[in-house]
């Protein structure tokens, strides 16, 4: 009868298996390392992180060096990915171009996750006005695609690395808060929170010591999912000319810069940055997918 939260089932609905204690050791981490998809994703990510950190040292040419006598060269042994309209080595620009995107996407996601987690815990556990208000804001933010909202704010504030990072981070905040909130609501149904109340624990301790560790898996998944979206958004912004400004190497900006000569058949100048974006997003998604699978099992 009672459809209220906190009124538990009174008939026995489940029977616990009286098996021998499970052996420790099959940690989620080990389960992850056993998955080929995770390994593949992690290798891709590590590759691009290495490029972001040491790109200029690895790259065979300077990404800025123009060779006006060797513009629009097809891929060759000297220039694996060819050269662009200004005769710059596309391969080097692709390697070095990983830096800006990873920097912005990672920082924005970290910002959104930290703020969103704190907000989500408060919304889910304390409820009340904050919960009502933020829930509505989330709805409003969700009504407009991320890219368009980011476009609006970045246009208003003027484009810079800091602005893009903050804008994406702040837009993520209510979205991540919503995910954390629903994970917290699931936890709120559990008796260990009643137990904590019976020990007279204060709200901060309940939120951060009791609940937070239990919603960490959900936050981790959300983080990786959002990282994918952040890359998506940053690429789109640069493509639309609102991201990193030339001549700094950047995948999205390079596509825009060379897109005009695509009909002329100079496909390598756009396709390689495009494939780089694709590989990075696939890498992130492979990792996300494996983490989700491991947590679900």
């Amino acid at each position: 009868m009672i459809g209220t939260p906190g009124a538990p089932v009174e008939a026995p609905r489940e029977v616990t298996v009286a098996h021998a204690p499970r052996r420790a050791g099959s940690t989620p981490w080990r389960l992850l390392l056993r998955r080929p998809t995770f390994i593949a994703g992690a290798v891709i990510l590590l590759f691009w992180i290495t490029c972001a950190l040491f790109g200029t040292a690895i790259a065979p040419h300077s990404p800025f060096a123009q060779q006006l006598l060797a513009t629009n060269m097809r891929p060759s042994a000297a220039h694996w990915f060819g050269t662009d309209q200004l005769g710059r080595d596309v391969f080097s620009r692709v390697l070095v171009g990983s830096r800006s995107i990873l920097e912005i996407a990672a920082l924005a996601t970290v910002l959104g996750t930290v703020l969103g987690t704190a907000l989500g815990l408060v919304m889910g556990y304390l409820g009340g006005v904050v919960d009502l208000l933020v829930s509505r804001i989330v709805e409003a933010v969700l009504a407009v695609p991320l890219i368009i909202l980011a476009l609006l704010f970045v246009t208003a504030l003027g484009s810079s690395v800091l602005v893009i990072t903050l804008v994406v981070g702040f837009i993520f905040t209510p979205l991540i808060a919503r995910t954390v909130r629903s994970a917290v609501l699931v936890e709120s149904q559990l008796d260990y929170l009643s137990s904590a109340r019976l020990l007279g624990e204060n709200s901060a301790r309940v939120m951060f010591v009791e609940i937070l560790p239990n919603v960490m898996p959900a936050i981790l998944v959300e983080f990786t999912v959002r990282l994918g979206y952040a890359i998506f958004t940053v690429v789109a912004l640069s493509f639309l000319g609102l991201g990193i400004q030339p001549p700094t190497p950047d995948w999205g900006a390079d596509i825009t810069a060379n897109y005009g000569v695509l009909p002329a058949g100079y496909w390598w100048e756009t396709i390689f940055p495009a494939l780089a974006i694709m590989s990075l997003i696939i890498g992130v998604n492979l990792v996300t997918d494996s983490i989700e699978q491991v947590l679900a099992s």
């Binding site: 538990p8 149904q189 559990l190 008796d191 260990y192 009643s194 137990s195 019976l198 009791e210």
Partner: peptide
């Protein structure tokens, strides 16, 4: 608080995992 405590039905729910 000390005087009144409880043993819940389902330990999976009652213990912080």
């Amino acid at each position: 608080l000390k005087a009144l405590q409880i043993v819940f039905q389902n330990p999976d729910s009652a213990l912080n995992r």
